[in-house]
């Protein structure tokens, strides 16, 4: 496990290095002055710019500039937004939790629905149910997300009127922001209408998270199906059958556990895809997350915000990636210690 951790740590440091270099070089690539792009001081006087340039070490070599930029990042000085002149770091802290909430709920829904359906498809391999599930999965990941979002709004919030179509919670409820994740904040607050607020927030999250979850769920269906088929083909399943276990016993005791481990390995890879979908969904459902904030900053040519948002969002994705790697390694001894079996 130690070697595994060290290797992941190495990968993590390397990725952070590349991401920070990428983000640093963006300030040169964006149109306009580099020093304004990196600091966001768009209204500063020439003297003010000179001060900022000194602060960022503009007159030093590129490597020193990069080093100063890194230090600034760690101190929480990510520049200010070009449009609102608010600090980017605070803006990201405001918006990222809503995205975390949406993506995590969607990931949960996708896993809870996708994986069992995939197992069912594998158990009924080459039968009607399998074909049906596969064709559903094909349509599910071909459907354009913005179209799906609009259709669900039309059906569930306008025609049927069941669920709200925009925002994170009704404006009637005043919830103080502590962690930024709405559900935890509601539970922490001492408002007398806690439970109504909780219900309201959950009815707001159902539509967007289901829309985000559809495509990843269909990918989980396919992953779970392939993994289950591979497991059912192995020798230990044959041995279990020879022992005289019933089919259900084999599935519940042996097959599901081993198939699940392989699906979990790929969750991290799917997460980047899920965040992309969440960004578009946030725009459609007016979800106050970082994706909507980023897309709005593009309309406004807010380069400092784009730079910071890219860094924050990719760090978040990579952290989830590493986390799933660790969960996989804890669950599967084969992944962390090669001497336990053939790789």
């Amino acid at each position: 496990m130690l070697i595994f951790t060290l290797r992941r740590l190495n990968l993590f440091l390397f990725t952070m290095l590349i991401l920070s270099i990428l983000s640093f070089s963006l300030s040169f690539l964006f149109p306009g002055e580099q020093i304004i792009n990196i600091s966001g001081q768009i209204n500063a006087t020439p003297e003010g710019i000179e001060l900022v340039a000194l602060e960022y070490g503009k007159h030093e070599s590129l490597i020193t500039q990069y080093w100063i930029y890194l230090n600034q990042l760690f101190e929480g000085n990510w520049g200010v937004s070009m449009t609102s002149q608010l600090p980017i770091y605070g803006e990201i802290l405001n918006h990222l939790p809503a995205t975390i909430e949406l993506t995590m709920t969607a990931l949960f829904i996708a896993m809870v629905t996708g994986i069992p359906i995939g197992f069912i498809a594998a158990i009924n391999h080459r039968k009607k149910a399998d074909d049906f599930i596969l064709s559903f999965a094909m349509i599910g990941y071909s459907i354009p997300i913005f179209w799906l979002g609009l259709l669900t709004i039309l059906i569930f919030s306008i025609q049927l009127g069941w669920l709200p179509s925009a925002g994170q919670i009704s404006l009637l409820y005043e919830i103080k922001q502590v962690t930024g994740i709405q559900f935890i904040d509601i539970l922490l607050s001492d408002s007398p209408y806690k439970w109504q607020a909780f219900q309201n927030a959950s009815s707001h999250i159902i539509l967007p998270s289901c829309v985000v979850a559809l495509a990843p769920a269909t990918i989980f269906i396919r992953l779970a199906r392939t993994s289950m088929l591979n497991v059912l083909d192995t020798h230990y399943i044959k041995a279990a059958m020879a022992k005289g276990l019933t089919f259900q016993q084999i599935i519940y005791r042996h097959a599901i556990r081993n198939a699940l481990v392989n699906v979990i390995r790929d969750v991290g890879l799917q997460f980047a895809n899920l965040v992309t979908l969440a960004m578009v969904t946030e725009v459609i459902f007016s979800w106050p997350g970082i994706g909507r904030w980023l897309i709005e900053s593009i309309y406004q040519r807010d380069y400092t915000a784009i730079q910071g948002g890219l860094l924050a969002l990719s760090c978040f994705i990579f952290l989830v990636h590493i986390l799933t790697d660790f969960i996989y390694a804890t669950l599967n001894p084969l992944a962390r210690e090669t001497h336990r079996g053939p790789q």
């Binding site: 990968l11 990725t15 590349i18 980047a272 578009v280 980023l294 890219l310 990719s314």
Partner: peptide
Amino acid sequence: HFLDVILSIPSLLLAIVIVAILGP
């Protein structure tokens, strides 16, 4: 490693950043 990092950034986000550099 570089490719792994690039592949871990969401495709749309990357496209958006490139569009931001080049202009819509």
